[in-house]
Design a binder for these strands. Structure first.
Lengths: 345, 345
DNA sequence: CTGAAAGCGCTTACAG
DNA sequence: CTGAAAGCGCTTACAG
C-alpha cells in the first residue's frame, strides 16, 4: 500500500533526502551534486519506480498541478468537446483536470467553486452562471472564463465567441437566401452571450429593412425540459404562420425546433428556413441537413488552457487581462436553401 | 493568498490545534470537549470561513476523496453521459473526479494510470484498453471496470451491459420484422464487448436458421476515421447487394452507416433495415428514426460509483468481486419497419 | 476535559 | 559537494 518515498531512495543510495530531492528535481547541476551520486540516485529511483507524492509536494510548494474546469453540462456535446481539448492540452503541461457541471445553477456553481478551492487547484476555467462574479473575484487564483463573461467586470480573462457576429451572419445568410419574415427562438436568460445573439439577430434584420418587432422574438424559460421546449416552439409556430425562417439561439433549441417543425408537418428549408447557433452531429446528418454557425471548439479549448497556463507560470506580476473573441463559421446546409427540394434518404 | 488554518482558529479560540481538529471533525463529543469550547470553535471557524486543506489532510490520512475516471473518449456522448452521472453521484459522497481519455490507446491509458496513482486517488473507474490488466492489478486501490472487463481475470469488479443479449435482441428483432439476409458491421477489436456483440449476432441468426457465414460479417479496423468508415461500409454494401438489413455494433458505426446507405441511394427501413447498438440523439431524430438497443446510462453511472464507494468505505477485508451485468433496451423505430413507408419532414 | 508531539512526504533556505 | 532542520496543514496516539 505504502508507496516508496524519497527516504527509501536516500537510504539505498547512502545519501540524504535533500540530495535525492535535488537530483530528482533536476537541480543536480545547479546544486553541484557529483555526477556519480546523481547517476546512482537516478538509477535507484528508476529501479524502485519512484513516483513523487503530489500531495506532499503540493502541501509544501502550494502548487497542485491541477486545474478546475467548471462547465454548464459535461454531457452537452459542446462542453464535452471543450473538456476533451482542455484535458489533452493540460496534460502536455503536466496538469490534471478536476471538473464539475453547474447546470447553470448558481448554488451548484458556488458549491463547485468552494470544493475546488479547498482542494487547492492552481487555476480555474469557468463557465460562469449569473451572479457568480463575487465568488470568482474572491478566488485568489488565476481564472479564465469561457462561453460568457461579466461585461461590467473589467479585469477578467476570457475566451468567448463573437456571439453578435455569429447571429448576425446567420440571419444575414437567411436574408440572402430570400427569407423575409425571420423569427428567433431564444431563452429568457439574461446572460451576455444570449443577449448578444439576440442583438445580432435584431441588428441583421434592421440592416436589411426587415421587421424586427416583438412578435418575431420568442423567449423561452431556459429551465424547460425537452418536451416543454418542443411544445412552446410548436405553439409559437402555429400562432405565427407568416414566419418563413427561424434562427435558433442554441443547438439545443435547434434540435427541439426540428421536432416542432416536423410535428406540424412543415418541411425544413422549403416551408421554413432554419439556421442554428452552434453545430451538432445531428445538424450534419439530418435530412435535410441544418445550416449553422459553428463554434471553433478546438481553438476555444486550446486558447483556454494556454491562457491559464500563461497566468500560472508567471503569475508574479498581474498581467493585463486577456480577452479572446473568436469568430464563428457559417456552415451552409440544406435547411437554408428554399429553392432546393430535398430528396429523402 | 494563504488560507486560514486550524492554527488561526486555535489561536483565536485560545485552545490547541488538537482541540480544534477534534471539534471540526465532529469528534467533540467522543473526545469529551466541553460544549462551551466546541461552540466557540465552530463559531470562529464559521466567521473565518475555514476550509480544511485537503492536501494536508490527504497526506496525513492517505485519503484524497478523489476518484480517477478513465474513459475511452470524454467527447463521446455515451462516456460523457456516464461521466456526468459519476460526477453527480460522487459529489453526494464528498468525492471529486479526476478524468482522462485513453482513445483506446494502451500507452495513453498507462500514462493516465500512472498520473492518477501518484496523485493518490482513492479509487478508480476504468474503461480498460487491451493489455491493461497487469497495470490495473498493480494499482493497490479499489477499481471498478466499465464497459468491458478481462474475462481471464476473476477478481475484478465491473459494471457492464449484456452485450450478447443486446446483439441477440437487436438481430432477432430484425428477423421478426421479416428481414432475411442480415449483416453486421463491427470492428477488428479483440475486446470482450465487441466479441460478445458478434457472438450475439451469430447466435441469433443460427437460432433462426439464417445464414451466418463469413460474408455477412464485416470487420473494420477500429482506428479508421469517419471518412474511412463510411468508405468501407459503402464498399461492403455495394459488394453485397443481397443484404436486406444491417446490425451496427456501435453507435459510431451506425452513424457512419447512415451516411453510407444514403450515399448509395438506398432507403433505410424499406430498402435496407437497420439496428444499432447503443442509442444516440441522432437515431431518435433522424428521418427515418433508427432502431437501437440502448444502454442504461444512468444506471451504469450510479452502479459504478456505488460499487466503488462501497469498496472505499470498508476496504478492510477484501470483499468478493462484484459483477453487474445490465440489460439493454430495444427501442423500436422506423429503420426496422420494412412495411411502413416513411414520410419525410 | 485538553494539549504537546510526532509524522504524512516532500522542498528549500541555511550551514558547513 | 552534501546534509540537518524547518515547515507546509493536518490527524491522532498518547499523556495527563
Amino acid at each position: 500500500m505504502k508507496g516508496i518515498s524519497i527516504k527509501d531512495i536516500a537510504q539505498e543510495a547512502g545519501v540524504s533526502p535533500t540530495t535525492v530531492s535535488f537530483v530528482l528535481n533536476g537541480k543536480g547541476k545547479e546544486k553541484r551534486i557529483s555526477e556519480q551520486v546523481s547517476k546512482r540516485i537516478l538509477k535507484i529511483a528508476g529501479k524502485l519506480k519512484y513516483k513523487p507524492n503530489q500531495l506532499a509536494r503540493g502541501l509544501r510548494t502550494g502548487k497542485t498541478k491541477t486545474i478546475g474546469l467548471i462547465v454548464e453540462d459535461i454531457a452537452n456535446i459542446f462542453f464535452a468537446n471543450v473538456a476533451k481539448v482542455v484535458e489533452d492540452e493540460a496534460d502536455k503541461f503536466g496538469y490534471k483536470v478536476l471538473f464539475g457541471s453547474t447546470e447553470d445553477n448558481e448554488e451548484k456553481a458556488k458549491g463547485l467553486l468552494e470544493v475546488l478551492r479547498y482542494r487547492q487547484v492552481d487555476g480555474y476555467i469557468i463557465t460562469p452562471t449569473l451572479n457568480l462574479d463575487k465568488e470568482i473575484a474572491a478566488l485568489q487564483k488565476p481564472v479564465v472564463l469561457m462561453d460568457r463573461y461579466f461585461p461590467n467586470i473589467a479585469d477578467s480573462n476570457y475566451v468567448v465567441v463573437d456571439n453578435f457576429q455569429g447571429a448576425y451572419t446567420a440571419v444575414s445568410h437567411l436574408v440572402e437566401q430570400g427569407y423575409k419574415k425571420i423569427g428567433i427562438i431564444t431563452t429568457t436568460s439574461a446572460q451576455i452571450q444570449m443577449q448578444q445573439r439576440l442583438d445580432g439577430f435584431v441588428d441583421a434584420l434592421q440592416k436589411h429593412d426587415l421587421p424586427a418587432g416583438k412578435n418575431v422574438i420568442k423567449r423561452l424559460p431556459f429551465d424547460l425540459d425537452r418536451a416543454g421546449f418542443i411544445q412552446e416552439i410548436t405553439q409559437y409556430l402555429q400562432q405565427n404562420k407568416d414566419l418563413d425562417a427561424l434562427f435558433f439561439a442554441t443547438n439545443y433549441l435547434g434540435i427541439c425546433g426540428i421536432e416542432s417543425i416536423r410535428s406540424i408537418g412543415l418541411h425544413i428549408g422549403t416551408d421554413i428556413g432554419m439556421v442554428s447557433f452552434d453545430d451538432h452531429d445531428i445538424f450534419r446528418l439530418h435530412s435535410p441537413s441544418i445550416t449553422c454557425v459553428a463554434q471553433p471548439v478546438e481553438e476555444i479549448g486550446r486558447r483556454l488552457i494556454h491562457m491559464l497556463i500563461a497566468e500560472l507560470e508567471h503569475s508574479t506580476e498581474a498581467s493585463a487581462p486577456q480577452h479572446v473573441v473568436l469568430s464563428l463559421e457559417l456552415r451552409k446546409r440544406e435547411s437554408s436553401m428554399p429553392a432546393v427540394h430535398h430528396v429523402n434518404a
